[in-house]
Design a binder for these strands. Sequence first.
DNA 1: GCTCCTTTTACGGCGGAGCGTAAATTAAAC
DNA 2: GTTTAATTTACGCTCCGCCGTAAAAGGAGC
Lengths: 81, 81
Amino acid sequence: MDLSARTAEQIGEAIRRTRKARGWTQSDLSGRTNLRVATISSLENGDAGTKIATLLTVMAALGLEFRLVVRGESVEIEDIF
Amino acid sequence: MDLSARTAEQIGEAIRRTRKARGWTQSDLSGRTNLRVATISSLENGDAGTKIATLLTVMAALGLEFRLVVRGESVEIEDIF
DNA sequence: GCTCCTTTTACGGCGGAGCGTAAATTAAAC
DNA sequence: GTTTAATTTACGCTCCGCCGTAAAAGGAGC
């Protein structure tokens, strides 16, 4: 799974898809993160006002991490150096 | 360029590196985004309280996008950092 | 129809982000 | 070391996220 995102909506969708791929409800995620169900809901619905801390907490619970990629560049290892 | 991040500090560092790779100052970024220099400064310094909207605005100005990847699934190149 | 589970929305409260603006600290040149 | 550029920090202000808690709306199945 490798989801690109440039908007809060796309981030939320990636979170939601990963959560469902884990077979978890928002309530499950809430229990694992100490974040309110309401908070997770608005994050998944693309609220750009959500704090980075909240996003990172959810991503950690889902086993996700970021890659900040320059648009248009491929992720070829040869391009690193 | 491909920077992995699991923490706000790593995100901030990736932002700063990309900005400098563009030869821009925080003031330049501020002008391109209508965000205060102070806001950009705290983002680059790893403030997890920063809003996703702010991060996305800065990333768009820098030509960056996210990739949310499942940890361990693809090639780990985070050690570039 | 009616349950049960899940998700969304609401409200008072508090804390903090980003604004406008400015000053202070740090780094870089000369 | 002194000027200049760059970054960080501060203050009053407004806005809103997340909290605790609860209720309402949506969906799946019987």
